[in-house]
Design a protein around this nucleic acid. Structure first.
Lengths: 213, 213
DNA sequence: CAAATTTTGTGACGATTATCACAGGTAAAA
DNA sequence: TTTTACCTGTGATAATCGTCACAAAATTTG
């Protein structure tokens, strides 16, 4: 009798596990992590255990300026818009599409108040990683810390590339750069949202687009 | 007799060790690592073991555009200038002063040819960390990998801040930002070197400086 | 110390861009 | 569908910035 219960319990646990794993392996998150780093199933499980799925509608706020950022966010679908409020005007500093990670690292690291806000740009599904739980995992598993390091490397390379855009190219050339290197951003981000991201006035960007198509 | 030799040998080893440790603990590198992360003496030793000290005179090249970057560099004294060649003109993308780390991460990670060059801006002493040996240490010691991750965090925060300069501020405001937030850079970098770093023409920067002092 | 080289300042001018104002379009909401 | 809100295009104008040319100053080198 006792044996049977144990067997049944094991089966329930097993099917829950496989069910869960099957689901996870379908997520973009799963793909992105395994693309980035070699990682064991158990480490992956641990990461998924601390990932919270959330849904946002267009315009809803994930992080508000002044708050302390406590999570790292992975965008499963939709996109997030990061912006700074400069004297009443919103200046977009980043767009995070599905498959990418975002956070306010400065606020996250030093538990200081964030100078940026993050909002959903469309209907968006994210996975949220709590900072403290992630740090625990870093201490527990070298594999996971290695994942964290590689993620940062990737983000830093992208950021350097973006900075250089401003140093090397004129506004017109910056637009052309996006056309050839990141065309998807032009299709999904409205002209008025894009202009501050490129450091150009909305009207100027409108004229650039007119001339260069 | 044999005993005496052993004792002498031990003493020699001991004094060499303390000597060596004393030396290392005087370096900026030592200070910067221990400021950034909690690390054991043995891990620190391992890091110092793979660090090669090198000296450069002003204008000498550490990394040349087209080469594959294989090291991470720590600046012990002096400074390094990172730049891109754009149609014959050098555009400075970074200045690394004593106490900071630099590399071309994109080239380092993917073993691709570097799009930037790095030169000494003054007489400069660096410590060079070989990528492959560093990766070995990452696998050996979670503490060292943690150090690597924290270093990247620091670099990414600085890079984000620098990008936002271009999105939020006008050329004049960018100069003022340096005046209040990084005055040392104005004292050590010549106007003509600084202008491309701020994305401004040399003449314009000269006029800005004239008006704003 | 003097010559050579590099760096900086300045004027003139043209090109680019920002700003303001408003009209027309487009998309979402009622 | 109609209303409402937001996004885009466009003209006029002023401010800013880049470019060219050259002189002055500062720094380096012989």
């Amino acid at each position: 009798m006792h044996d049977r219960i144990t067997r049944v319990l094991r089966y329930v646990q097993y099917s829950w596990r496989t069910q869960n794993m099957t689901d996870n392996s379908k997520t973009l998150l799963y793909k992105k992590i395994t693309d980035l780093t070699e990682i064991s199933v158990s480490s992956l499980d641990k990461l998924f255990e601390i990932a919270t799925q959330r849904h946002y509608k267009k315009g809803e706020t994930i992080l508000k300026q002044g708050q302390i950022c406590k999570t790292i966010t992975f965008v499963e679908s939709g996109y997030l818009r990061t912006f700074i409020d400069k004297e009443g005007t919103e200046i977009n500093t980043d767009f995070s599409f599905e498959g990418s990670f975002t956070t306010n690292l400065k606020s996250l690291r030093s538990a200081s108040s964030s100078d940026t806000s993050i909002q959903a740009g469309e209907t968006t599904t994210i996975y949220e990683f709590d900072k403290d739980r992630l740090l625990e995992l870093y201490n527990l598993s070298a594999e996971i810390e290695s994942f964290g390091r590689k993620l940062l490397e990737q983000l830093l390379i992208a950021q350097e590339e973006h900075t250089n855009l401003f140093k090397i190219y004129s506004p017109t050339e910056r637009y052309q750069y996006l056309q050839t290197n990141k065309p998807e951003i032009l299709q999904r981000i409205s002209l008025s949202q894009l202009s501050s991201y490129l450091g150009i006035a909305r009207e100027t960007l409108s004229r650039i687009r007119k001339n260069k198509e």
